[in-house]
Design a protein around this nucleic acid. Sequence first.
DNA 1: TCACGTCCCAACCAAACGTTTGGAGATTCG
DNA 2: CGAATCTCCAAACGTTTGGTTGGGACGTGA
Lengths: 191, 191
Amino acid sequence: MPWDTARTRRLLLEAGGRRFAATGFAGTSVADISRDAAVNKERLYAYFGNKRQFFDQVLAHRLDGLLDGLDVTGTGPDAVRDWTGRLWDRYAADRDMARLLAWESLELTGPAVTVHRLSACAGAARVLREVLPARDEAAARQLLLSLVVLVTGAWTLPGLGALITPDGDAATRRSAVLEHAEALARAAQPD
Amino acid sequence: MPWDTARTRRLLLEAGGRRFAATGFAGTSVADISRDAAVNKERLYAYFGNKRQFFDQVLAHRLDGLLDGLDVTGTGPDAVRDWTGRLWDRYAADRDMARLLAWESLELTGPAVTVHRLSACAGAARVLREVLPARDEAAARQLLLSLVVLVTGAWTLPGLGALITPDGDAATRRSAVLEHAEALARAAQPD
DNA sequence: TCACGTCCCAACCAAACGTTTGGAGATTCG
DNA sequence: CGAATCTCCAAACGTTTGGTTGGGACGTGA
């Protein structure tokens, strides 16, 4: 059997994403990850240095593409609603994403912001501004932030949902968030 | 020097709130809390059973009052903006609150929902519905959830803020959130 | 074929972890 | 007072942690 070091690396990164998303940095042991990946933990140290550097790699690997490819189709509040819906569906398809984002914010003092993610956000703000042309850059960014927080919060603060809408399911919440996103976009537009 | 067991308990609960808010349940050791409280850690076990039960007590102690006393003054979207602003200021005055809320959602599988918090949320939804009388119960709760998520997210997902609004400060974000809250309330109202 | 470097694993290590114990002062009640 | 009880602490317990090590299996170039 030949070696496949790229596969070993990938197995570790994937298992790290799963475990860190589930229990966070402090709540996950290297042995957990090693067991999930079915790879000896010594490999993690050989490839990534230590647990903390490995965590950074996992975050970059899983979060850099957060806003990539969420193109806007059309213009106006409807387009904003569409975009928000696609962001929601991205989280729904990759449950780990939102949780990793939350752990990053909570467990790291300074967010491990990569250049890639920064420019992706700038791109999203620019696109949003084209769609809602009347607002200035700052207002567009504030709107973008509210949209992302609204969607991300649904996945990272499930306790609030259970508390405030005890009988609500994900589909209802999704359509409510989209309605709210559209309302925000409409209000941001000049009349 | 006489004993003051109530004080010892309080010191532990306060230190637990600080430490858990800063580094979460898994990231905080009992020794950390004991050091912060200047109380022997054996007292924590004597009073609260174990680390996990102590965590639950800290959450209940600090989070039960989350929505208490946030009375609504006036009616209509302006009142909703006011209410949202008071929630924001509550978080600003007690930085631990939002973070504890986030840790609770992330680290506990089922949210440790207390009866007290559930009824407080029901009360808030009822008040909100009185302020915006046209909407049904479900829509009022969805709106309330969006407002709380919007405000809470600002404190629990600071990484997103740093990413999307790199130059923004708390005051600008506050007024943007209030503007958005008012817009949501306005959209929820019938014309 | 042999020697050298790479990949991998089991076993190991010291430190930190959650939790318990033994006993020293303080309080209470007879 | 004296014995029982309560509050508190220092030290210890066994386990788990992040991280390392020694050696065997494999690939590569001569």
